[in-house]
Amino acid sequence: MNIFRFAGDMTHLASVLVLLLKIHTIKSCAGISLKTQELYALVFATRYLDLFTDYISLYNTLMKLIFLGSSFSIVWYIRYHKIVRRSYDKDQDTFRHYFLVLPCLLLALLINEKFTFREVMWTFSLYLEAVAILPQLVLLQRTRNIDNLTGQYVFLLGAYRALYILNWIYRYFTEPHYVHWITWISGLVQTLLYADFFYYYFQSWKNNVKLELPA
């Protein structure tokens, strides 16, 4: 464990807590894409298959439970909670996220480190995580008015993967056999998808104006 990875995990944890806090306290999911949340639940479900078979550390197991629990409860809130679901904007959240799942699955079957069920599922979760934010970014472009919590949620989500890139660079130089091109490339693609959001987020923060994304 290194500081970049720990900071990345904490930033990732903060992003889901900000989202849960928003939904739980103001009982609203306005501006949140259910599709992105469903994709994230699928990412964790396919990545943490080793939850009960490979024990790595208490930290690792605990964080996996938190990420699984929070992502599925966020989906539950938006889908079934009688108050929250009313603020879900399904007419705007129209990204066909199934078109993301299939290509990621096919790609995982083609390009993976080892052709086993667990390894293909793990690779699928990496590819899917890289594109999972797209429905959310599309929704932000459409709804234009980004409330603070949603902006912070997306920012933290992007920052966590950027910190992971620093972690991969650190591990590459400190651990002789640590080479994972698939992880690195999908992580880089994921972070690049946030690039324009980061730009507008910092612009709004610097000029102290409300965050607006160009149409």
Binding site: D50, D54, M63, K64, F67, E113, Y164, T183
Partner: peptide
């Protein structure tokens, strides 16, 4: 195990 495959990350 997970360590060797590098899947020790979240």
């Amino acid at each position: 195990n997970a360590e060797s495959q590098g899947h020790d990350e979240l």
